Simulated assay, not measured.
Amino acid sequence: MGFCMRFLEILCAIVLPPLGVFFRYGCCKLEFWLSVVLTILGYVPGIIYAIYVIVTDPERHYDDDYRAV
């Protein structure tokens, strides 16, 4: 499941870089807004940053969202 989700995020990051970052982080994080700015300034820097952010982010465990902190 993790490989398939990461593949789809990378595919979205190639088509529309902020979308791939949005799926990974949501819209209220610095990574998303930096991806939006880089995409506006240049499409290729937006793609490079989005793929970098998705690939270097450690694999999320969806079960951790339901545990008490």
Score class of each variant (00 low, 15 high):
residue 3 F to H: 10
residue 8 L to E: 08
residue 42 G to Q: 00
residue 29 K to G: 11
residue 22 F to H: 05
residue 19 L to H: 08
residue 3 F to V: 14
residue 20 G to V: 05
residue 65 D to R: 13
residue 46 G to M: 10
residue 27 C to Q: 13
residue 27 C to S: 15
residue 13 A to N: 02
residue 57 D to F: 08
residue 5 M to A: 15
residue 9 E to T: 08
residue 64 D to S: 10
residue 48 I to S: 01
residue 63 D to S: 11
residue 42 G to S: 02
residue 65 D to T: 04
residue 38 L to I: 04
residue 60 R to G: 10
residue 46 G to I: 08
residue 57 D to M: 06
residue 24 R to N: 04
residue 61 H to C: 10
residue 22 F to M: 09
residue 49 Y to V: 02
residue 69 V to P: 09
residue 55 V to E: 12
residue 28 C to I: 09
residue 34 L to E: 10
residue 53 V to S: 11
residue 53 V to M: 07
residue 43 Y to G: 03
residue 17 P to N: 01
residue 17 P to A: 02
residue 19 L to I: 11
residue 18 P to S: 08
residue 9 E to W: 05
residue 29 K to S: 12
residue 22 F to K: 05
residue 25 Y to T: 14
residue 17 P to F: 04
residue 62 Y to A: 01
residue 61 H to W: 05
residue 23 F to P: 00
residue 38 L to E: 01
residue 60 R to M: 12
residue 58 P to V: 14
residue 40 I to N: 02
residue 53 V to F: 04
residue 55 V to R: 06
residue 12 C to Q: 01
residue 22 F to W: 11
residue 3 F to W: 13
residue 60 R to K: 15
residue 33 W to N: 06
residue 30 L to D: 14
residue 26 G to P: 02
residue 45 P to Q: 10
residue 5 M to G: 13
residue 43 Y to I: 06
residue 12 C to T: 00
residue 20 G to M: 04
residue 26 G to E: 05
residue 21 V to H: 05
residue 5 M to K: 13
residue 53 V to Q: 08
residue 14 I to Q: 07
residue 40 I to S: 05
residue 6 R to M: 13
residue 36 V to S: 14
residue 35 S to T: 14
residue 28 C to N: 13
residue 47 I to V: 15
residue 11 L to G: 07
residue 62 Y to S: 03
residue 68 A to Q: 04
residue 58 P to Q: 15
residue 30 L to I: 13
residue 52 Y to T: 00
